[in-house]
Amino acid sequence: MSEVRSAALAEQFEDLDQQHEASSLGMWVFLATEIMFFGGLFAGYSVYRGLYFPGFDAGSALLNVKVGALNTALLLCSSLTMALGVRAATLGKRRELATFLVLTILLGLTFVGIKLGVEWHHDYLEHLAPGINFAYEGPNARAVELFFVFYFFMTGVHALHMVVGVSILAVLLWMTFRGRFGPERYNPVEMAGLYWHFVDIIWIFLYPLLYLIGAHH
């Protein structure tokens, strides 16, 4: 350990590596709790899909796979820009970091915009919103309604995570402009990146479970 303490080192830590390890551990443990949070929804989905398979199949077929695929691509793009942003932060390239943060925020907002503004709006107009105007006619109507309960809740909680993520990135962008990050001081960017990628992973599973199971019709 060097004699001169880095200005980026908080006093409770021995060195920057230990500080980085502590931040990472905290974030990974938080993400483990998030897996349990979403895991409950996935377990509930699996149980009811097993009990009412034809209805879930028919409900999934009512979703637009193209829009779902587009949103998946947007989110993967945002993960790429986030990873490149973290890389820029590690190297102390502030301008590059700011650019990638802006790109990630824009991609994230586009995703949420399409999700809520296009898809949910369309579903509402099609009378597919359970508890509000659900009016699907056909076999297994009640099971289709149950599918849409899961659809709105799972995509809703996911979109909420996206909004939280965009807010965190906006704060990081402001901090970048204030010159708060450097080659030794980038932990917040990296931890926000972990969160962003995690939200991407949730969508990677939501996309097949919600959009693709009925796509063979």
Partner: peptide, 17 residues
């Protein structure tokens, strides 16, 4: 931590299902 998270998820899914 990563493996533990997956293990807990496996317990949740396996016992429920």
């Amino acid at each position: 931590v990563g493996v533990a998270a997956l293990f807990w998820l496996a317990i949740l899914l396996a016992l429920t299902l």
